[in-house]
């Protein structure tokens, strides 16, 4: 680790030459000196003597002056934005915000100090998965044993079947599973297990839906039953029977809720609302849509009912304006706000 963070001047020399805004490159040596001066001047411990020496350096050569103006130009842009937004967006405090920004799978990467936070976001991981869907897309798969899987929007899974286990890893998103009887030639029935960031879910002959959320997994069972084993509470196996739904974390579970049939309308490309708060409806719709979709708090408590196709979220929004006192403001095609009239 230490060697990685140490600056190697050889590595720096290999980097592409730096250019100023006038398009002329800087001499690597001058660039290095300017960087060192800046690091000294903003350290909080620079003395008057240091500042005096820096001024001498800056005036000693026109190239030094040009390098310094280049730094100041970029600084102007740096300082144009509220500090807390820059920090929260580009370099969040890892401990406080990690749940908001990354999945449990990536915590290991962060702890070892490698890479950028945004690099570790789920879409990038999902890109290398066995099967994935884009925003607004649903995809049906039939696995080799006859198990049917429907992937919902922005989802990714790895399929890992071995002689002893049928394992699906849910990396992100949501899937609906109808398990098949394992092939009769198998000497033993291989268990069917889904692994999420929080634990494993073993199917006991079943139809169920499983969703990876920010810091928990959600399971709803429509037929048969599943057995949940949270990663940090392996002795506490939880059986979820048909008609029930449950969210769990690595070490604990929420309370049981009834499994909502409307919640799996997406497997038919639909979203079904029965007197749902508009704010909650927009939260659901957002998953199927590229770009930003915001609901004005003044409109969030209006109630929505209806069956809407997920294929075209623009027309879903348009139809809201027919039945509710709202209008849709498009700032760009990718930035829509639902506002109260």
């Amino acid at each position: 680790m230490a060697s990685k963070n140490t600056i190697s001047s050889a590595a720096m020399l290999k980097q592409a030459p730096a250019f100023a805004e006038d398009g002329l490159p800087f001499n690597t040596h001058v660039a290095q000196q300017a960087s060192e001066w800046l690091v000294l001047l903003i350290s909080g411990t620079a003395t008057d003597e240091d500042r005096h020496a820096w001024e001498q350096w800056r005036n000693a050569d026109p190239e030094h002056g040009r390098a310094w103006r280049h730094i100041e130009n970029i600084n102007q842009r740096l300082h144009g934005i509220p500090t807390d937004i820059v920090l929260k967006t580009l370099a969040p405090n890892a401990l406080r915000n990690r749940r908001r920004f990354i999945k449990a799978l990536t915590v290991v990467l962060l702890a070892s100090g490698t890479g950028l936070l945004v690099r570790q976001e789920t879409p990038w991981r999902a890109w290398t998965a066995d099967y994935r869907t884009g925003t607004g897309e649903q995809r049906k798969l039939t696995l080799i044993d006859g198990t049917l899987i429907v992937l919902n929007t922005t989802s990714a899974i790895d399929v890992d079947y071995s002689d002893t286990l049928r394992l699906i890893q849910l990396r992100t998103g949501e899937m609906f599973i109808t398990t098949a009887q394992d092939k009769p030639t198998a000497t033993l029935m291989r268990p069917f297990v889904v692994e999420t960031a929080e634990g494993t879910v073993r199917a006991l002959g079943t139809r169920f839906v499983i969703r990876q959320e920010d810091d928990r997994s959600h399971v709803a069972v429509y037929e048969g039953a599943v057995e949940i084993t949270p990663f940090d509470a392996r002795d506490q196996k939880i059986v979820v029977p048909a008609g029930q739904a449950l969210s769990f974390t690595r070490h604990t579970r929420d309370t049981f809720l009834p499994a909502d049939e409307n919640a799996i309308a997406w497997t038919d490309g639909m979203i079904v609302a029965e007197k749902i708060r508009l704010g909650d409806f927009i939260d659901s719709l957002r998953r199927y849509r590229n770009g930003y979709l915001i609901c004005d708090p003044a409109a969030a408590n209006l109630l929505v009912s209806g069956v809407f196709p997920l294929k075209d979220t623009d027309s879903v929004l348009a139809s809201l304006t027919d039945s509710l006192p709202v209008s849709i403001h498009y700032r760009t095609r990718f930035w829509a706000t639902v506002v109260h009239k």
Binding site: I7, M12, Q15, A16, P17, A18, F19, F26, A31, Q32, A34, S35, L38, V39, A67, H70, I71, I74
Partner: peptide, 10 residues
């Protein structure tokens, strides 16, 4: 600092 001000390959 070196990265931010002087390493951008344009």
């Amino acid at each position: 600092t070196h990265q931010c001000y002087f390493s951008r390959s344009l």
